[in-house]
Design a binder for these strands. Structure first.
Lengths: 199, 199
DNA sequence: CTCATTTCATACTGAATGGTACATAATATT
DNA sequence: AATATTATGTACCATTCAGTATGAAATGAG
């Protein structure tokens, strides 16, 4: 009964997400968006609403994918310590590639929008809380399996690791010495003490 | 020989710093600047150069004051643990006031500009490295005084604390539960172990 | 084929952006 | 007091911004 849409909404949304992720909300213009999405302005507005609405949709797409990615990454290793180590080290490795470090879309948004926009204050907080639960469950798995020290407070440690993940992600944008990053990662991992091996 | 300047350059620069600190580079307009600085556009350009140059001058003013403030704050207590505790707790307290949390100008800049502007990548990195040295010296003072465990690696611990300071500062913008913040602070302080009391 | 409906491309809107030309006002030196 | 020099206020510039009006193109239903 109608003319069908000529573009793939999901691909267009992904392109918008990449733009906002790389440049933030303010610095991304509608021209940036339409050219990277490969659509015209009226199509953007009819499909996604205005710039802020598109940003929110892109943000939600990111947080879902991000949480799923972290969960998968942490489940890839039977050793919880190894899982966290690989996750943090991979984060650092990516940041030292040639391209400037985009960091984390959610963290970028926390800095740019949360102080002035209550909706994003809530959305960013909730995402970090969600990640904190994933970390906590992972630590609890390590305790149950006997890998980690039973004395570890899983919740508290997870929350501290979230703080350190945020700090590391942000500082990596300034490309600090790798030794700085390495020692911060070592210290973070020291909080996930292995169980005392018999004796 | 000339007409003297009618405004106080230092006060105008402070006003500019506050604006950039609160809203970032992109979101601060020249109109925001001139009205808060109480001067006209041509005065701004002749005294401070263009927007980016003014931003850099304001940034440098901030980092100097910030480093001095941290140094003073950490020296206020003879106990190093107490000094760090007060510093972190004060940070959290400020963030929960009514006004939206501006966070740290340097951290905001790291997120907004460092990935796309090498000059600020360097300036922000150097400031954090400088703070790291202040932390390290403070920890070393605690070790020398006998307050802290000699086994502490002062440099590594300082670097980790910087990461945690960044993480905490950023997450506070999303106003997490105070319990979350409190436990992150406890974990951070646990890295500065007191010396074993005899026996 | 005809018509209703929706998407698309072009071109535009008013407002805001960073930056500046210019004339006037104020000072210090002579 | 006359002059050279700098600061100020106004008014402007071209450009870019987010958002939209409009008409043509494409589809499915009858």
């Amino acid at each position: 009964m109608v003319r069908p849409r000529e573009f793939d909404e999901e691909k267009a949304l992904t392109a918008a997400m990449q733009q906002f992720w790389e440049k933030g909300f303010e610095a991304t213009s509608l021209t940036d968006l339409t050219s990277s999405m490969g659509i015209q302005r009226p199509s953007l507005y009819s499909a996604f609403g205005d710039k802020k609405q598109l940003f929110e949709t892109a943000f939600r797409k990111y947080t879902q994918a991000h949480a799923a990615s972290i969960r998968t990454s942490l489940q890839r290793h039977s050793s919880v310590r190894e899982a966290f180590r690989k996750y943090f080290e991979n984060l650092a490795d990516e940041a030292y590639g040639q391209a400037p470090s985009r960091g984390c879309f959610c963290i970028n948004t926390m800095v740019e929008l949360s102080p002035h926009d209550e909706k994003f204050e809530i959305l960013t907080r909730e995402h970090q809380m969600y990640l904190s639960v994933i970390f906590q469950e992972t630590i609890e798995r390590g305790i149950r399996s006997g890998e980690l020290d039973e004395a570890i407070n899983a919740k508290q440690t997870a929350q501290s690791l979230i703080i350190q993940l945020i700090g590391l992600t942000v500082f990596l944008k300034a490309r600090p010495d790798r030794s700085f990053v390495a020692s911060a990662i070592e210290t973070a991992l020291s909080l996930i003490k292995p169980a005392k091996s018999e004796g």
